[in-house]
Design a binder for these strands. Structure first.
Lengths: 201, 201
DNA sequence: GTTTTATATGAACGATTCGTCTCGTTAAGT
DNA sequence: ACTTAACGAGACGAATCGTTCATATAAAAC
């Protein structure tokens, strides 16, 4: 040990950290998420094991568990990586806004993202931490919708007796339902006939 | 071996089956399903392993796998066991019919059935055979709804441009969504405000 | 009653997967 | 140069999976 003991600097203050250590491979996170996605595509859902991800990513399992302590956390990481930002359309009519959203998200989900998000919902049924993260994500998406719904309300399109959150909830419910039942080829305009009329005056 | 060789009778015809065998423990099926449900209650979702079910039911694993080749099949068996028959209300107004259904199914799901059904949906995301069984089950429930919807149509309650299947689908979507997001205490009457107005003229 | 046959039981098996834990290495900060 | 932390690779025990035995038992066929 040197005189400059661990945890202290020359002023006597406790030094939290004298080195932040190495990140030999700053691409580790990316490599692992990419590997997970690759496995998901090639081997399917069942092939997505922690061992396989480690081998595919040329990473140690400890590295994976350090960053994503559960399989669910890894799934959330994958989804965050492939999910781009999305801003809702503002077409001047809420029905077409909704239809545009459904068309967008269904196409997005038809790629890699769909299976991943479906798995997240599935994992949430048995992993409380995933359920919590999913609930938070859902809350954010509902907030996004409130903006659109408020615009529609200002235009006088909405039945004022309806709760705005319930409108957003119903839209999301329909989207999820189609994902979970593997029916992502429906046109948003068709679905909006039920939902749209529901929120119109 | 006797002279009357296996597979032949005195006329020389091939005998398909000389005995249909025994069911020593006709309670085996019930014991296994009960054990699975007990485990689900006591140990939670993660505790529902094939080994644990076998031990709890005092059954051999081979017996379980004979009747339910996958975990998903077992889940379907559990749900079928606890699910009673349900006939939709006929209140004279489709909104109240829907609200009554939602109240009924939410209460049903608040018991053991909810976690089981949620797990089935989850398992369907990674097990094609479960997905198929679930799709079939969904189709039956939609058929049930068509009766209710037709009644409403005859009463002139419905917007005629709407597909009947889509109405049923939206109802089920909302129900599932509340199950999967663990919000089974909502009043059906509130939810029907969005859906109900949607299908009203 | 005896034989046949299908099922049930219980234990063991190899194969996976999990999550933890070393080990030696590498790179960033001091 | 020294310290520190993350890294890759993999060994490890535990748990689970799905299968395969040998054995027992009961219903049906004779």
């Amino acid at each position: 040990m040197t005189q400059n003991a661990v945890g202290k600097n020359e002023v006597g203050k406790i030094a939290q950290r004298r080195s932040i250590g190495a990140r030999k491979n700053p691409n580790a996170e990316a490599a692992i998420l990419d590997a997970a996605l690759t496995l998901l595509q090639s081997k399917g859902v069942k092939g997505l094991t922690m061992d396989a991800v480690a081998k595919e990513a040329k990473a140690g399992k400890a590295t994976i568990y350090r960053w994503w302590p559960t399989r669910g956390a890894l799934l959330l990481g994958i989804y965050a990586r492939i999910k781009g930002p999305h801003t809702h359309s503002d077409t001047g009519h809420i029905e077409t806004d909704i239809a545009a959203f459904l068309d967008y998200v269904f196409e997005f989900w038809r790629g890699d993202a769909g299976p991943v998000f479906a798995l997240i919902i599935a994992e949430a049924q048995s992993d409380a931490s995933v359920a919590e993260a999913l609930a938070q994500y859902r809350a954010e998406r509902i907030k996004d919708w409130l903006v659109v719904i408020d615009r529609a309300a200002e235009r006088g399109e909405l039945n004022v007796t309806l709760e705005r959150e319930q409108i957003a909830d119903a839209i999301i419910a329909v989207a999820w339902h189609h994902l979970l039942t593997n029916r992502l080829h429906v046109k948003g305009a068709e679905l909006v006939q039920v939902l749209g009329f529901g929120i119109l005056k």
